[in-house]
Amino acid sequence: MAAAGDELRMWRNFQRRARFFRPDVGECRVKPPLFDYLVARSSDEAIRLLSDNPGAMILAGGQSLIPAMNFRLASPSALIDISRIAALKSIDIVDGNVRVGAAVKHRDLEQSDAAFAVNPLMRTALHYVAHVPIRNRGTTVGSLCHADAAAEMPMILLLSDGWVMAEGPNGQRKIPAAEFFEFHMTTTREADEMIVSATFPALPSGAGYAFAEFARRKGDYAVAAVGAILECDLDGRVAAARLAACGIASRPIRLFDVEASLVGANLSDAEIDAAGELAKEAVTAPDDANATTAYRQHLLASLTRRVIREASEKVRKG
């Protein structure tokens, strides 16, 4: 892991090619470049096509990839369309956890009562992912693979201690969320691997949870968002705490210091305020057009206090 100073420098460099801004903005394009369009009928076929076509990319919902292609920020040699693979379209409860196939649309996951029953944070957060027409086409696994540092679902996967299943020519491997998101728009997926599913674990029994986000406009990427999962013992003291945030660093991050400060706490106002102050230290994103670092810290502290309060209200003690 990069030291804080390195991370800031990397982030600044990266901003120059982040999202839709690039230095050569004078070259305007809105039509995608040429590519080979390949339809995969099975995961195996998709993975084979990925190996056989260097520079190919997986196309699921395309809601991040196609705008990047329209702007010619992405020029894959081929697109491998996995949206017709039935096996990847299902939401399954496996070992009590929610397994989301690579072709599952955000909107289907949002509307899945089974998924909601196991991990309600997904629906709560999905409500903040762009707007319904985008969620109707965009896939949750696609969003995880796109790995925008301000995106909600990578943060929820991290918060929930989930993982993705990567499949390549040599078989499958499970990548925990903590090891998957490397940097803004960068993951540890290998070039010849496809993420076939993501698993969002069930919330611990009796846990309280909350999600809070601030964006300049409805549906925009978060300026900052925080999620929390709290468990309390019989005395009402915090037995376990998980918090994660996005929009504040070059990838979604866990707020470990905040978590540690909360364990054993009975969530007095002072303790919650202190937790908010601790959260500020997690902000490494430099000033940008939407927020200065100082404001982001203030915002993150506010949102952190809010989710701790909301989550604690939902806790079933003991």
Partner: peptide, 14 residues
């Protein structure tokens, strides 16, 4: 360089 020459970053109100 214009740095927000798109509808993602130039914030027209919805």
């Amino acid at each position: 360089n214009p740095t927000n020459a798109n509808f993602v970053d130039f914030l027209i109100p919805y």
